Measured scan of single mutants.
Amino acid sequence: QRITLKDYAMRFGQTKTAKDLGVYQSAINKAIHAGRKIFLTINADGSVYAEEVKDGEVKPFPS
């Protein structure tokens, strides 16, 4: 399943989102408010992988 960072954070909370991605909650808040195009893939085992689309390139998040 693929979902935006904002939607994932709204569904699970910023604290869990940060923990799942290995970053601080403040980084999640800042990324959402900056309007960054970050998409999360939720794997069947429950693990989460995030990618950011920037300038036409897709890069892992966090980099």
Score class of each variant (00 low, 15 high):
E52V: 04
G46H: 06
L5F: 01
A31L: 14
L40Q: 00
T17K: 01
I32V: 07
A31T: 04
D55K: 08
I32S: 01
L40N: 00
Y24G: 15
Q1V: 15
G22D: 06
H33L: 15
I3R: 04
D7S: 07
G56Q: 07
P60T: 07
G56D: 09
V58C: 08
V53T: 08
V23M: 10
Q14V: 15
F61A: 02
G46I: 02
K59C: 11
G35D: 13
R11M: 15
F61G: 02
R11W: 10
T15V: 14
R11A: 09
L40T: 02
T17N: 01
G22A: 05
E51P: 01
V48A: 05
Y49C: 09
T4Y: 05
K37N: 12
Q25H: 09
T4V: 04
T41S: 08
D7G: 05
T15L: 14
A9M: 12
V48H: 03
K30E: 15
F12M: 06
A27Q: 14
A34G: 09
H33S: 13
A31N: 02
L5R: 00
T17R: 01
V23R: 02
L40H: 00
K30S: 14
I32T: 03
V58Y: 11
Y8D: 00
A27Y: 15
Q14P: 13
A50Y: 02
V53H: 12
N29M: 13
K19H: 12
I3M: 15
F39C: 07
V53A: 07
V23E: 03
Q1T: 14
K16L: 03
P62T: 05
E52W: 04
E52G: 01
D55I: 05
V48C: 06
A31D: 02
Y49K: 10
L21N: 01
L5H: 00
K30P: 04
K54G: 10
R11H: 08
A18S: 07
A50E: 00
K37C: 11
K37I: 12
K30I: 11
E52N: 01
G13Y: 01
Q1S: 12
T4A: 13
M10A: 14
I28P: 00
K59S: 11
I28M: 04
A44I: 11
Y49P: 00
K59A: 10
A34L: 10
K19L: 12
F39Q: 03
K30L: 12
I28E: 00
K54C: 14
F12E: 05
E57P: 03
G35V: 04
Q14N: 12
F12D: 01
I32N: 02
L21S: 02
G22F: 05
E51Q: 08
I38N: 00
K19R: 12
V23S: 05
V53I: 14
S26P: 08
M10C: 11
E51T: 09
I3Q: 06
T17D: 01
K6S: 09
M10R: 12
R2V: 11
V48D: 00
K6A: 14
T41A: 06
I32A: 02
T41E: 06
A31G: 03
I3E: 06
V48F: 04
I38P: 00
G46W: 05
S26H: 11
L21G: 01
A44W: 09
N43I: 07
Y24K: 15
P62Q: 05
P60S: 08
A50M: 03
S26L: 09
A34H: 10
A34S: 13
N43L: 12
G46D: 05
Y24F: 11
R2H: 08
L21D: 00
I3H: 07
F61N: 02
K16F: 02
T41N: 10
D20L: 11
D7P: 00
K6H: 11
K30W: 09
K59P: 03
L21V: 06
E52F: 03
K6L: 12
R36V: 05
Q25G: 09
K37H: 14
A18M: 04
L5C: 02
L40G: 00
A50V: 03
R2A: 08
Y49H: 10
G13L: 03
I42P: 04
Q1M: 14
P62E: 05
S47V: 07
Y8M: 01
K19T: 09
K30N: 14
D55W: 09
L5D: 00
A34D: 15
R36S: 07
G56P: 02
G35W: 04
N29L: 12
Y49E: 09
G56H: 08
A27G: 05
D55Y: 08
D55T: 05
R11Y: 09
V58E: 05
G35H: 10
G56N: 10
A31R: 01
K16R: 09
L5V: 02
M10W: 09
F39G: 01
P60Q: 08
G35N: 13
D55F: 08
Y8W: 04
A50D: 00
K54A: 13
P62G: 08
V48Q: 02
D7M: 08
N43C: 11
S63L: 12
A18V: 02
A27S: 11
S26A: 11
K30C: 14
T15A: 15
G13S: 04
E52A: 02
F39I: 07
K37A: 14
I32G: 01
E51V: 12
F39N: 03
R36D: 05
G56L: 06
I42Y: 07
A27P: 02
R2C: 09
K59R: 13
P62V: 05
R11F: 09
K37W: 07
I3A: 05
N29K: 13
Y49V: 11
R2S: 08
F61D: 02
E51A: 05
V53D: 11
K37Y: 09
Y49D: 07
E52I: 04
S63Q: 12
K59M: 14
L40P: 00
S47A: 08
F39E: 04
R36Q: 07
P60M: 07
F39V: 07
Y8V: 00
G22C: 08
T41G: 05
S63T: 12
N29E: 15
D20P: 01
M10S: 12
T4N: 07
S26T: 11
G46C: 06
S47W: 06
K54V: 15
N29F: 12
I3F: 14
K16T: 05
A27E: 15
P60N: 06
G46Q: 06
D7F: 04
A44M: 10
F61Q: 02
T17I: 05
G22H: 09
K59T: 13
S47K: 11
D45A: 05
T41R: 07
D45Y: 04
D45S: 06
N43Q: 13
S26I: 10
V58S: 10
N29H: 15
S63V: 10
K54T: 14
N29G: 12
T4K: 08
A27N: 07
V48T: 05
I42C: 06
R36Y: 06
K6C: 08
A18N: 01
T15Y: 15
A27K: 08
K59H: 14
Q1K: 10
I32H: 01
Q25N: 08
L40W: 00
Q25S: 11
K37P: 11
I28D: 03
D55N: 13
E51K: 05
A18T: 03
I28N: 00
I28L: 08
G35I: 03
E51D: 07
Q1G: 11
Q14M: 15
G35R: 11
P60L: 07
I38R: 00
G13R: 01
S47C: 07
A50T: 02
Q25K: 14
Q25A: 14
A9I: 14
D45T: 05
P60K: 10
D7T: 06
K59W: 14
E57N: 11
K37V: 12
A31W: 13
A44Y: 10
S26W: 15
T15F: 14
E51L: 08
N29A: 15
G13A: 01
A9E: 05
T15S: 13
T17L: 06
K16Q: 11
G56F: 07
I42V: 11
S63W: 08
V48E: 00
K54M: 14
I3Y: 15
Q25E: 15
D55M: 08
A27L: 15
K6P: 05
Q14C: 14
G46F: 06
I28W: 01
R11V: 09
K30A: 15
G56Y: 06
G22R: 07
E57W: 10
K54P: 02
G56M: 07
L40Y: 00
E52H: 03
V48M: 08
L5E: 00
F61M: 03
F39A: 02
N29S: 14
V58H: 08
Y24V: 13
A9H: 05
E52M: 03
A34P: 02
I42M: 09
G13T: 03
R36I: 05
A34E: 15
T17W: 02
K19I: 10
A9V: 15
T4D: 06
G13W: 02
I42A: 04
G22Y: 04
S26N: 09
L40C: 09
T41L: 09
A27V: 15
Y8F: 05
I32P: 00
G22L: 04
A50Q: 01
Q14Y: 15
G46A: 05
Y49R: 10
A34F: 09
S47N: 07
